[in-house]
Simulated scan of single mutants.
Amino acid sequence: MPRRKHIKIAEVRTFENVFDYKQENVEQHIINYLGSDKPVTLELGCGQADYSINLAKLYPHRNFIGVDRKAARLWNASKNANSEKLKNVAFLIAYIEKLNEIFQRIKAEEIWITFPDPYPRRSSIKKRLVHPRFLEVYKNILLPEGKIFLKTDDDTLYAYTLKVIEEEKLILHKSTDDLYKSDLLSEEEKIQTKYEKQHLAEGKKIKLVCFSFNDIA
Rank of each mutant, 00 (worst) to 15 (best):
P39M: 02
R122A: 14
P132N: 13
I216F: 03
E188D: 15
K79Y: 12
A77R: 08
R122T: 14
I106P: 01
A90Y: 09
L142S: 01
D50Q: 08
K147R: 14
Y33I: 07
P39G: 03
L135R: 08
A71K: 15
Q192M: 13
F211V: 02
D117V: 08
L129N: 03
I102Q: 08
F211C: 02
V137M: 00
N76E: 10
E16F: 09
I191C: 07
D183F: 07
L208G: 06
D178K: 10
L162E: 07
L86D: 05
E27P: 01
I53L: 08
I30F: 06
L184E: 09
F19I: 12
T193W: 09
C210A: 09
S78M: 14
E188V: 09
K38G: 00
R121T: 15
L200V: 14
T193P: 15
E168A: 13
L55G: 06
K174L: 12
V137N: 00
I111W: 03
D153G: 13
P116L: 01
K127Y: 15
I9W: 03
A49K: 06
R122Y: 11
I206H: 00
V67C: 07
V89Y: 01
N140V: 02
L184I: 05
R133F: 08
N17M: 11
Y138C: 00
N25H: 04
D178F: 11
I125C: 03
L34F: 06
E11V: 12
L99R: 01
R122H: 14
K190I: 05
V209M: 10
T161Y: 03
V137I: 13
F211L: 05
P2T: 09
G203L: 11
L172P: 12
F211R: 01
A49L: 06
Y138W: 00
K107A: 09
A90G: 12
F64G: 02
K70P: 12
A71E: 08
F149Y: 11
E188Q: 14
Y195K: 12
A94G: 07
I106E: 04
P116A: 00
